[in-house]
């Protein structure tokens, strides 16, 4: 089972005040810390689990700058065998262009399964996986919460709304977009990342992939980024913890749910 897993480095946004850049087309990134996209972390773990069960190899790919190699090293430390970074230079990227780049790069490889995260925590697009599958002409399924490989097929669970899964069989090779919670991603130590430096991390540029100008033309353009429209918002309860607790208990009493 040769598995390709597509990953992305994204800013950590929980408990972070995001600021909009001067051009109003993105966030000010100077002060941000970066991590592997949460969905992709589950995808890497799933790839490594499948390799451990079935043998084969795991290749991690990202489209990004040198700084993004951090997430590839992390994937190697988790158990990926090799990594590829495709440097887009200063090209404008959207989900479509990234999907064309990945399609071309993966198209030259041997693979049985391609995994992506459902979406990335920055632009929340969720389109790259399905586009890559279409580009490669292989089957696909989205929002996957379980995978069992059997007789050249993947038996998968797609998480639907309202506490329901759809179970289906997908012929290999296939692309599956992985939902969070599908497994428990292993812990990665600094030492593990250091050790993984011995593994191969290739870097290539767009020129060597033979992409057309059309492939590299974004289909969508972020014209403006802005803060959410004002809402009435919550009435904030101030004071020390004791006073806050008293106010909350009174509220519960008032709403008729106090014991």
């Amino acid at each position: 089972m040769d598995i390709v897993v597509c990953i992305k480095r994204v800013p950590l946004i929980q408990e972070v005040d995001l600021e909009i850049n001067d051009a109003q087309t993105g966030v000010r990134d100077e002060a941000l810390a970066y991590v592997i996209n949460d969905w992709d972390n589950y995808a890497v773990e799933e790839a490594v689990i499948l390799k451990e069960q079935l043998g084969g190899s795991v290749t991690a790919i990202t489209v990004g700058s040198e700084a993004d190699e951090e997430v590839l090293r992390r994937a190697l430390a988790m158990g990926a065998d090799q990594a590829l970074r495709i440097d887009p230079g200063s090209r404008q990227l959207d989900g479509f262009v990234i999907s064309r780049i990945l399609t071309k790069a993966i198209g030259t490889m041997t693979y049985d399964l391609i995994l992506t995260g459902v979406q990335a925590d920055d632009d929340n697009g969720g389109m790259v996986g399905s586009m890559v599958a279409e580009g490669l002409g292989i089957g696909h399924a989205a929002v996957i919460t379980a995978i069992n490989i059997k007789d050249g097929e993947a038996v998968v669970h797609t998480e639907l709304e309202g506490g329901m899964d759809e179970v289906s069989k997908v012929k290999l090779p296939a692309l599956l977009s992985i939902q969070t919670g599908i497994n428990e991603p292993r812990y990665v130590s600094i030492m593990g990342i250091r050790k993984a430096r011995k593994k191969e991390l290739k870097v290539t540029d767009l020129e060597s992939l033979g992409l057309s100008e059309d492939d590299l033309t974004p289909r969508t353009v972020v014209e403006q980024v802005f803060f959410p429209p004002e809402t009435a918002g919550a009435e904030m309860i101030q004071g020390d913890a004791g006073a806050v607790a008293e106010t909350l208990l009174n509220l519960l009493k008032e709403k008729g749910v106090s014991k």
Binding site: M127, E134, R219
Partner: peptide
């Protein structure tokens, strides 16, 4: 819909039909 099924279908259709897509 930007639903599990729409997320599976729309981007692939967008590529095949040559129509740009914005999601969610």
């Amino acid at each position: 819909g930007h639903t599990p099924w729409g997320m599976d279908l729309a981007p692939a259709l967008s590529v095949r039909a040559g129509l740009p897509v914005a999601t969610d």
